[in-house]
Write a protein that binds this DNA or RNA. Structure first.
Length: 629
DNA sequence: CCCTTTAAGCTTTTT
DNA sequence: GCTTAAAGGG
């Protein structure tokens, strides 16, 4: 492999990086990169990976470890690196989630955990339903009695936090049931197997390392460079694992995040992770000033929110492709949700009919309670033949490995698709443990293409939902349920695969019934012709040409008084998803029982900021218009 | 059946 | 913390 000189290295694909980004890419020290929405955080990390690998700054056999929160973020980063610098070099780029990282340490080295905290070699992920909660069960067996006055619904939450509240090992003299609960869960004494939550696994991984200094050394030797994505969302427990691994080492850490998008504090994100990291790792701070995503006038709105996060009002640079006058924002005032639904549907219909938008260029966002805020809208959309759906429900379903495999298999049966073919082929080879250099490789590929031929004729004969069910069963059998369960351990327990399988048949039949072809049914299920409706949290990291934010009202911003900063961040995330156009709606009345009247007193400062931007145009649909801007 | 009290959902991910 | 649904008492 040719090594490129550091001084002549240039970004892949002819991309130009802003000066600070280029400094980060080539940095030899720990760095904290503050990068707002649309700054190209993932691209920055991908380019840095290429730099490190191509110039041998990360010298074989040493590797880069990239840690993300979500599987798709980890996957996305890995794919970009592979695309930019090739299969060979990208083998030394390991992109995974925090949970996968912690679990791989525990699974590989659990024998290094002192006996008292050593889990059984086989354990399951703890179930945390309301009806079945393994951690609560363990506490109950350990003699836990809920504190007086604790609301019943809070007990599970409380115990899930309590069990990981302190680093391991717990004090010897501790007689509080936490220690006993750990013991029961590690050894599976009250459940049929050992059960651990991901936070417990992270605590165990940290303890494992602290007990095995040579393991820490070998991690530091293996990973010369470490990337931490979405750093503002890091929990204390995750941070302690990272610190245990790389504190005072030669491994170079690059953390990338944005405090203005810190919307996970309620789920444990550390409010002070930036200063803590800076003081622990002596990192240099960088600030990116480019926003590649949004039109200039929309940036003006975003900037109005900077001071609310105690951030200096830096001058964000927009992409040169924009005119200074690009970007529109409207605030719609409605009498009620019916008028709102009709108007929004008209608006969207206009966007689609004039050819400026495809349905999935538009996103309808709500703060929370998608169904409550959008049911009228979905009815109204359906009346005029536009598909719209609660995207969150499908997002979770479609990203299941099993579903993704079934759908890709169906895709190659209905059209030529190189990436679907590669996807299915690779999984099939893995399932059958056929090595890339093996002679069996042709036989396996043949098997797949024969199966696809068979599938094609089956698909032509579909008549009802049961036919589809049988086809999906056939696909599952082709890959073998047992092999799938062994390969995707999340499916090992329970009848999860069976439930997913029947759900897939159900969804596909619905779409097939409407559209008449399998190809269209798959596309529709994938959401290609659908206006997505989702919560702000689900929209994080995504971008759309037009964002319609439904319900800029007090009631939508839940627990606003004690989550003020976080809700402001959530609103900032919402409006920074838009590339071209923003619409906000306020409805005087919503169908929320006796609390139907909506207000905008608590979030008055949002309205003030929108007004102060000088960009947002009020539109009065309400019969009794009242001046609010 | 009506009124009051109590419980629970809401913003989430991870093998 | 605010809203809504379910449970329980009379």
């Amino acid at each position: 492999m040719k090594i490129i000189d550091k001084n002549i290295w240039e970004p892949a694909d002819g991309l130009t990086l802003e000066p600070a980004a280029l400094q980060v890419v080539k940095s030899e020290n720990n760095a904290l990169v503050i990068a707002g929405p649309g700054a190209g955080k993932t691209e920055l990390l991908a380019q840095r990976a290429c730099f490190l690998l191509e110039t041998s700054t990360c010298n074989a056999p040493r590797k880069i470890l990239a840690i993300s929160f979500k599987r798709d973020a980890a996957k996305n980063l890995a794919e970009r690196v592979e695309k930019r610098c090739g299969t060979e070099l990208s083998k030394r780029f390991q992109s995974m989630t925090y949970d996968a990282f912690a679990k791989s340490l525990v699974d590989r080295f659990y024998l290094g955990i002192p006996k008292e905290y050593r889990p059984n070699s086989v354990y399951d992920i703890a179930v945390a339903d309301r009806t079945q909660n393994d951690i609560r069960t363990a506490y109950e067996h350990a003699g836990f009695v809920p504190p007086v006055g604790m609301r019943p619904r809070d007990i599970n939450d409380f115990l899930e936090k309590e069990i990981v509240r302190y680093a391991l090992p717990l004090p010897q003299e501790s007689d509080y049931p936490t220690k006993a609960a750990w013991g029961l869960l590690l050894k599976g004494d009250v459940t049929d197997t050992a059960r651990l939550s991901f936070t417990m696994i992270t605590r165990l991984a940290t303890y494992l390392l602290q007990c095995n200094q040579q393991l820490i050394k070998s991690l530091q030797m293996t990973y010369s460079h470490v990337f931490l994505d979405e750093f503002q969302d890091t929990t204390r427990i995750q941070y302690e694992l990272v610190k245990t691994c790389f504190y005072n080492s030669n491994s170079v850490l690059t953390a990338v995040g944005d405090g203005k998008q810190r919307i996970m504090v309620w789920a444990g994100a550390m409010r002070d992770v930036f200063p803590t990291f800076t003081s622990d790792f002596g990192s240099t701070a960088y600030q990116l000033v480019m926003n590649h995503r949004s039109a200039p006038r929309l940036i003006e709105i975003q900037k109005m929110f900077f001071s609310r996060f105690n951030e200096q009002p830096i001058s964000i640079q927009t992409n040169p492709k924009w005119q200074a006058t690009d970007g529109q924002a409207y605030l719609h005032m409605f009498d009620d949700h019916v008028q709102e639904a009709k108007t929004i549907v008209n608006l969207v219909q206009g966007y689609i009919n004039d050819g400026s938008h495809k349905p999935n260029d538009i996103c309808i966002l709500v703060k929370q309670r998608v169904d409550a805020y959008s049911s009228e809208l979905i009815t109204e959309f359906n009346l005029c033949g536009i598909q719209a759906r609660n995207e969150g429900v499908y997002q979770d379903f479609l990203k299941e490995d099993y579903i993704s495999l079934c759908i890709n298999t169906l895709i190659i049966a209905v059209r030529r698709d190189a990436s679907s073919w590669t996807y299915c082929r690779n999984i099939l080879l893995d399932l059958k443990s056929v090595d890339e250099s093996s002679s069996e490789i042709h036989a396996s590929q043949r098997e797949l293409s024969d199966f696809i031929t068979e599938l094609k004729s089956d698909l032509r004969a579909i008549d009802n939902e049961n036919d589809l069910k049988m086809i999906i069963k056939k696909i599952t059998d082709f890959y073998s349920t047992d092999a799938l369960k062994a390969y995707f351990p999340q499916y090992l327990r329970s009848s999860y695969i069976e439930r997913l399988s029947s759900q897939l048949a159900n969804y596909l039949w619905e779409e097939y019934d409407k559209s008449g072809t399998v190809g269209a049914a798959i596309n529709n299920l994938l959401g290609k012709n659908t206006v997505p409706i989702m919560t702000i949290h689900k929209s994080k990291g995504l971008e759309f040409k037009t964002i319609i934010f439904l319900g800029l009202e007090d009631a939508a911003f839940f627990r606003f008084n004690d989550q003020r900063e976080e809700d402001t961040a959530a609103f900032f995330v919402a409006l920074s998803r838009a590339k071209n156009t923003l619409h906000f709606t306020f409805s005087k009345v919503r169908p929320f029982g006796q609390f139907s009247n909506q207000h905008r007193r608590v979030i008055a400062d949002f309205y003030q900021a929108l007004h102060d931007s000088g960009v947002v145009e009020p539109v009065y649909h309400a019969t009794s218009a009242e001046v609010i801007m």
